[in-house]
Design a protein around this nucleic acid. Structure first.
Lengths: 213, 213
DNA sequence: TTTTTTCTACTGGTATTCCTGTATTTTTTA
DNA sequence: TAAAAAATACAGGAATACCAGTAGAAAAAA
């Protein structure tokens, strides 16, 4: 068997060449690590993964083609034995939760110290969950609007939420979607109720914090 | 004279260790470059700069203590002969303009290809302006709300704009600032007028695009 | 110090949002 | 297919935001 001497095969998917290069050069210092591929787009990485055996994917969330959350799910469903470790700038709780729910083995922040990142990768390979310090802090304290479960919002509501964020008035939205202004008002009202806020300004603030559309 | 053989002394100020490390390892490949310091905070970098001679500072904009725009001005006023090259994630026109106005010799995006970044640094040292491709594109097309001059907003207005962004109502703001609600309304009206919009939602959208507070 | 700008505050009126409740049709899920 | 969820739409009324014009006091700039 070669398994005991074989190096850990790492894949990096991150659209910032600087980050990829930095990570690669750091990992090169470790004896038992081998970066077998770095990709600046999600689909390119996925294509490579389908054809090459990897032990761990270090995955950014903001990618040009697909988002890391969806990609994580995809990877885990195709290659359940391959670990996925999120490495992101985003500090939104929701994103962390979503990544974990989709099978990620950890969540590291890009602004974390180098050793936190390296150790995170090692922990991950040992089968432990890996979180950078700041991530732990964010995940531990429950946010105000999330004591129960986060509100489920419908497709239409999401659509209207976006228009609200763009500063559209009720009438403008109604014209745009070919429905009655009263319908829009109902949607907005339902949104506000679901998020537990009392005006549209708060609505977009909260939605930004929670969903990060 | 040693000047002709001396290596170019580079300082990196960036709160993402991964970026700093990546950049450093890339620059290490270049014969005539020498990274003499990397700093994760603006003030730490500034302190070092005050005591050590550097040729170029590669400067991030989002820093934990001070913002890169202000820091750039500070550096250029203390050390006019030292180049400052912005290296940022931000794609807002306004930030680019502000950096240039404050004496930066260029503006590179972190998601730019490696060679664009390395060449940017070289161009910068040759006395040329350095911009990554995407930056050029952004700077060339004038944004909709910037055909004339951007509106000047007062300190108080900026304060109220922030509160509006937080979803505060007129009455809530009035209570907070110990003034009449009518005063708040006047400020909001003036803001809307200055930005040429017709409701608070648009206001925060525009302000986000333009000022990036 | 004079001038200008900013911050403050009001009147009076219009428009829009927000609240409460109801209800039909369409789509999705069980 | 039956039940649940989502999208649609309305009424009546309260609250708030928006519009137009004015104006005094404080602060900053000339």
């Amino acid at each position: 068997m070669f398994d005991t001497v074989r190096k850990t095969r790492i894949i990096i998917i991150d659209d910032h060449p600087l980050v990829s290069a930095g990570l690669e050069s750091l990992l090169a210092r470790e004896e038992d690590f081998e970066v077998i591929g770095t990709f600046a787009s999600g689909l390119a990485g996925l294509a490579f993964l389908a054809q090459n055996q990897a032990d761990i994917v270090i995955l950014d969330i903001s990618l040009p083609d697909v988002n890391g959350v969806d990609l994580c799910l995809k990877i885990k469903s195709l290659l359940p034995q391959c670990d996925v470790l999120a490495l992101s700038n985003h500090t939104e709780r929701m994103l962390m939760m979503q990544m974990l729910q989709n099978g990620a083995s950890g969540y590291l922040l890009k602004n974390a110290p180098i050793d936190e990142i390296i150790n995170g990768i090692k922990d991950c390979l040992k089968g432990e969950m890996a979180f950078s310090k700041e991530v732990k802090a964010i995940m531990l304290k429950p946010s105000v609007n999330e004591l129960g479960t986060r509100p489920k919002i419908t497709k239409r509501e999401k659509q209207i939420l976006k228009l609200i964020e763009e500063g559209k008035t009720t009438v403008a939205m109604a014209d745009l979607l070919f429905v009655s202004p009263l319908t829009i008002e109902t949607h907005r009202r339902n949104l506000m109720q679901k998020f537990g806020v009392k005006n549209a300004l708060e609505l977009i603030k909260i939605s930004r914090e929670q969903l990060l559309l």
